[in-house]
Design a protein around this nucleic acid. Structure first.
Lengths: 139, 139
DNA sequence: CAATTTGCATAGCCAAGCTATCCTTCTTCC
DNA sequence: GGAAGAAGGATAGCTTGGCTATGCAAATTG
């Protein structure tokens, strides 16, 4: 497989994996982008909108919108910074934590289903490839 | 890396790779979904809307919309099937082929840039992982 | 020939990106 | 200390790419 073909197939493969995952959160009605944000807030702790934008490598308004949606659903809340009136810390609520964990279980079941037919070798290859990918894109 | 962690990192890694690629077609103003369709039509030949939906694993109306957009831009055309009045073959136009190749060069440059720092081993790992991914999702 | 199936289009919705712009609050510097 | 600039965040308005539900015409089948 040359680089050109690798590029094409990597692109289409990742596209389809994400499409598959997107439609897979049956019981947890929260989309991947929101889940990803929530996951940062739960596992890495509170962050501001700007920090989230940098972490997710998207624009600041995109995060603002996601946060607004999550807040409307009671999954996060904005907390004013007493020392800097411009900053607002975004925190996951207990409901947000519960939902995240439920969604992770859901997704885990799905991914376990996909990973199950693979052998140990293939799983290791995927794990290594994931690390390479992260390094490539600065993760 | 256990399966759960693999799932999470694979998910976030692919998300970010796609976001990166999405914003990278500076000179070729055509989005990834459209590019992907065009690429099928150019490399695999004419296909109907239904066939494209199955190949891309999305709903039929999604393809109808994409095709309509591509047609409006003169990149594909619909050709009625003389033997079956329901079917319409979607074909890339010369302009579509030109644009696809230009975009591929653009993207190739980007991906070569990302792949360049990798050694032969890493590239092989990515290639193998791509094949595993394709098998996982039925590609 | 009527009923069903098939292929596609349309309507209408939503999520998640983006840029441009505005408001508020800090910081800086004279 | 006040004006100017910088920084954080929100809002407006747009685009893309998904979806379901539905309609319609052509083909197939009983």
């Amino acid at each position: 497989m040359n680089d050109d073909e690798l590029a094409r197939r990597l692109h289409s493969g990742t596209l389809r994996l994400l499409r598959r995952l997107r439609t897979a959160d049956g019981s947890a009605p929260v989309s991947p982008a929101r889940l990803s944000l929530l996951s940062i807030l739960v596992f890495a702790g509170p962050r501001t909108v700007g920090e989230l934008a940098r972490l997710e490598q998207v624009s600041q308004p995109t995060i603002s919108n996601l946060v607004a949606a999550l807040e409307a659903e009671g999954l996060v809340r904005r907390v004013a910074d007493p020392d800097d009136g411009r900053r607002r810390e975004i925190r996951a609520t207990p409901a947000g934590r519960r939902l995240l964990h439920a969604a992770r279980e859901e997704r885990e079941r799905l991914l376990l289903g996909l990973l199950a037919p693979l052998g140990e070798r293939d799983r290791k290859t995927l794990a290594r490839a994931t690390e390479i990918l992260e390094a490539m894109i600065g993760g």
